[in-house]
């Protein structure tokens, strides 16, 4: 009984102290004005690079694009200058921010954007926006990202998480606090032993655990496991997901700036096997195609592309060098001859 009371008093002291100290330490208001405390700084190097190159065609996606398209080859095959932005781990929230804050901000705007996606990524606004992905969101976010906050964070939040974020700084600031605590062990021990600073440590970890050093089959299994959320049947209900996704906003913002959008579904290693995709995903893609059709957006589907056979894949879902060349040529040719009757995805 006495121990329980001491526990409750101790916990109250910790919560009270953290509620006073953390807002002051991190410079946030108490209670928090905004539930999502982003540190928005649109990558200045990217803006500069865009402004200098003034691309006519922008290729946007994640590592599936990064490993799937050879930018130089595409540039040679397709008229006009090309800018490839394959952001590792990116999903729809980051793509929306890039389109709004980078692609549409450049003058003159590009003519065309090719958006590469897989599964139901286009309608999962809360996918890959927290944890290690938070910094990617912050890299492309501007001040006052109301839609981002609502779709990516608040819509998927429980009521108790909402109030805890607002009133309990220990919870609200947990990501920064966690990084600070773990950072002590992560960086200070190597600094003492090897003399490497935090940048070198991050580089060493990234290099050691690069996809190219991983066992291919285990990496593929881990990727599938990590993306179970994408396999959740509920995520394949396109009609229900559309209005709470960034897709309409992405189409709108490009339309406003007179930029043509082409959406491309990439092939995964899983797609090599017959009947390996959930039936609900096929219905989802059909509904997505119908929606894009009504919005005047071209949809190219490479998920069943025979030219991308097993020998064209490298690590996990990524294409190897040969596959990259094949896919680059395919996309360039299809873009040159696109329109109804191309046969792509039909």
């Amino acid at each position: 009984m006495t121990r329980l009371i001491v526990f409750i008093i101790s916990l109250s002291i910790v919560l009270l102290f953290s509620s006073l100290w953390l807002p002051a330490h991190y410079g946030t208001a108490y209670p928090r004005n905004s539930i999502v405390s982003l540190d928005p700084t649109i990558d200045p190097d990217l803006l500069k690079s865009f402004a200098e190159r003034k691309p006519e065609t922008v290729l946007l996606g994640n590592s599936m694009l990064g490993e799937g398209i050879d930018e130089q080859l595409f540039d040679e095959l397709f008229p006009g200058s090309v800018y490839k932005l394959g952001i590792n781990g990116a999903a729809s929230a980051v793509w929306y921010l890039v389109l709004k804050n980078v692609v549409c901000a450049v003058e003159p705007p590009p003519r065309t954007v090719l958006l590469f996606f897989r599964d139901s990524f286009l309608t999962q606004p809360g996918f890959r926006v927290d944890g290690k992905y938070r910094s990617k969101v912050e890299m492309y976010a501007g001040p006052g990202e109301v839609l981002l906050e609502r779709l990516a964070y608040l819509d998927g939040m429980d009521w108790y998480s909402y109030y805890a974020e607002k009133w309990l700084p220990l919870f609200g600031e947990r990501e920064r606090l966690r990084d600070d605590i773990v950072g002590i062990a992560k960086y200070s021990v190597p600094l003492r032993v090897t003399g490497n600073d935090s940048i070198a440590v991050d580089g060493a970890i990234a290099g050691t655990f690069a996809d190219s050093n991983m066992n291919e089959s285990m990496l593929t299994a881990a990727q599938l496991d990590a993306e179970k959320v994408g396999g959740d049947i509920d995520h394949f209900d396109f009609g229900a997901r559309l209005e709470t996704s960034f897709l309409p906003a992405m189409v709108d913002v490009l339309e406003e700036h007179g930029i043509e959008l082409v959406v491309l579904r990439v092939k995964r290693r899983r797609d090599l096997k017959a009947n390996s995709r959930p039936a609900a995903l096929e219905t989802y893609v059909r509904d997505l195609r119908d929606y894009l059709d009504t919005r005047g957006v071209t949809f190219l589907d490479y998920s069943d592309e025979d030219a991308l056979a097993a020998d064209k894949f490298g690590e996990g879902d990524h294409l190897n060098e040969t596959g990259r060349e094949v896919f680059t040529r395919l996309v360039a040719e299809d873009m040159l001859t696109r329109g109804p009757g191309t046969g792509i995805g039909e």
Binding site: Y187, P190, V193, T194, G203, A204, I205, T208, F209
Partner: peptide, 9 residues
Amino acid sequence: GDSLTASVS
């Protein structure tokens, strides 16, 4: 190299 730094971290 990287392996030592990653291991120590």
